[in-house]
Design a protein around this nucleic acid. Structure first.
Lengths: 340, 340
DNA sequence: CTGTTAGCGCGTTCAT
DNA sequence: ATGAACGCGCTAACAG
């Protein structure tokens, strides 16, 4: 025996399918007796509407598609958690799709057709023009952390510039004046924006600002710190473009006998789980990842509802998550500040 | 202008919808010229079949439903990663649903009707009879880590009892005799089985065994360790029911100046990626989480295909993944062992 | 208030 | 090899 359909319910309750539909969708134009009868039969038969058929006739699926570049690590579980929270609060389901690097990843987008009411796409690794070309043309879509492009689209990004600037402002506020930035790989949008924000804040305050190159890996943080060691007295703060490089730098300095963070403060970016477990805990920048995911969904829901989304880029604020940097107030330092 | 349908393609190519359908589904009973024409028009119109309509007529959705109790932490991202790997290899999509604790969580199951071809349900926190009663009767389903029940069903479980016992045996083998277990939430089947396996092994060896309550979150590990601090000399090993609580305990003890793991060994359960990054690396129990998820999906696919699944419980073995616990051989400890 | 009926978009007989 | 017509299960517009 197959699943009960709306017809089975109608027959059993001796009414029309239309009435059953009305009852089940909570329309109020039904006689109470009929309503009761239908409800009784429906629950007795264990009737559950067929979502596929329903969506075909409503042309609404009650599902949003989420396209992610990967699922590795806590970032994605947090992101999904936030998205799910918002989606399920609004009675929406989530169809998850990972855009694997291998060829044809793009077609994951096509497969969403007829399955979802809207899309949240996070694809920092995909050529933006190619991505946009393959996006379902009529499906509301929110782009998350995608590379810059030329279309006007609803978009959500992390505010790297403001975050990095806030960190440098902070370092300066606690008395650091000779700042080294370990940058991420050239051409990476996040890395470039972070360097730019940091440089801007340093320039604004008239602090010494030097940039070393890195590649987001711990090893490059180690290498950069090694470069600094001979002249470490000329440095009182290192701000790396991500946590792993910061940790690499921290380990290297500590091993060389440099006092961290009193002599040289170290700050990172991302707030990876490891950041608070190293000693001293890493001062870093983080976003509320789950909140970020929830916000993407909220915006998508607005788009689906046809609200007046401004179809432009929103930037999620970044906050200083943890601060283990002591304030420098020694006469020596005051003198240095006076030099400026 | 709306999305192109099969009719648009048919009209434009001057053939019938049946022929378009045949071409697009790779049937071979079509004249090459017609095939070419249809393909040309389809791609020119950017035609993509409507998955909803397709599934209604095929009564196959090409989607599997994944119901999870939570998304917090790396365990779930790994599990999802494994499931996704297997599902996308088989051309299946994943509909993700979190069974929140709040009322109506059960109805997440109903909502899957007509959306999926099969279900992977992980629900360690739900009353099994209630769960089974609400499972879609005709939908192939693989139960993952659900509480014991009386139906014969395809099921996948982690062998918590044997794993926990193995860990306690190990701690005892390296000379620890006064063991504290930080348990997971009461009523959670995983938590209960782990506690039970640990208690059994401790009793068998005649070791001191004390249980503190926790809830699988890091904070509860911190709290439990704080409780122990005043009398930490009476403890030489802490075995937490999961890694996050173990890490919380580790951080707390280290911060209080307790030597970890020489004075107090700490062990966890799950082997989350973070476990090997803390210092010292966490001794823990693990399964190949992604592999576990993949296996659940593989089995579900077999069920959907109507293969001869044995509709019974499979248990994934658990291994001690990493061991940083030094062996205690001091006279002091020998004396203690001699006391028994 | 209630029933009848026409789609939603597609795959698939059954004819031809 | 091709086309016409039906049905998948449901909602909504239209009659009554």
């Amino acid at each position: 025996m197959s699943h009960a359909t709306i017809r089975d319910v109608a027959r059993e309750a001796e009414v029309s399918v239309a009435s059953v539909s009305r009852v089940l969708n909570g329309h109020d134009n039904v006689r109470p007796a009929l309503r009761l009868k239908v409800q009784e039969v429906a629950s007795r038969l264990g009737y559950v509407p067929h979502a596929g058929a329903r969506s075909l006739s409503l042309s609404r699926t009650g599902t949003i598609g989420v396209v992610l570049p990967d699922l590795h690590g806590e970032f994605y579980s947090e992101l999904l958690r936030g998205m799910d929270r918002e989606a399920s609060d609004r009675g929406l389901h989530m169809l998850l799709s990972v855009m694997h690097d291998r060829a044809g990843g793009i077609q994951a987008l096509h497969a969403m057709r007829g399955r979802v009411d809207g899309l949240v796409v996070m694809a920092p690794q995909v050529d933006p023009d190619r991505l946009l070309a393959h996006l379902p043309p009529l499906t509301p879509t929110v782009l998350v952390n995608c590379a810059p492009h030329h279309e006007r689209r609803a978009e959500l990004r992390i505010d790297n510039v403001a975050g990095a600037a806030a960190m440098v402002d902070h370092l300066i506020a606690v008395g650091r004046r000779r700042i080294v930035h370990i940058a991420g790989p050239e051409g990476n949008i996040d890395a470039d924006e972070r360097r730019q924000g940091a440089a801007m804040a340093a320039a604004r305050a008239g602090a010494t600002f030097r940039v070393l190159s890195g590649d987001f890996r711990e090893a490059s943080g180690i290498a950069a710190a090694a470069t600094l060691l001979p002249d470490i007295d000329g440095v009182d703060a290192i701000f790396a473009a991500n946590d792993m490089m910061a940790i690499g730098a921290m380990v290297t300095l500590k091993r060389a006998g440099v006092a961290v963070p009193s002599q040289v403060a170290i700050a990172g970016f991302d707030d990876v789980p490891l950041a608070r477990l190293v000693t001293p805990a890493l001062t870093t920048l983080g976003i509320d990842i789950a909140g970020f995911g929830a916000r993407a969904v909220t915006r998508l829901i607005g788009l689906i509802a046809g609200g007046d989304d401004d179809a432009t880029e929103h930037r999620a604020p970044i906050l200083i998550v943890r601060d283990t940097t002591p304030i420098i107030t020694s006469p020596n330092n005051r003198a240095q500040q006076g030099e400026i």
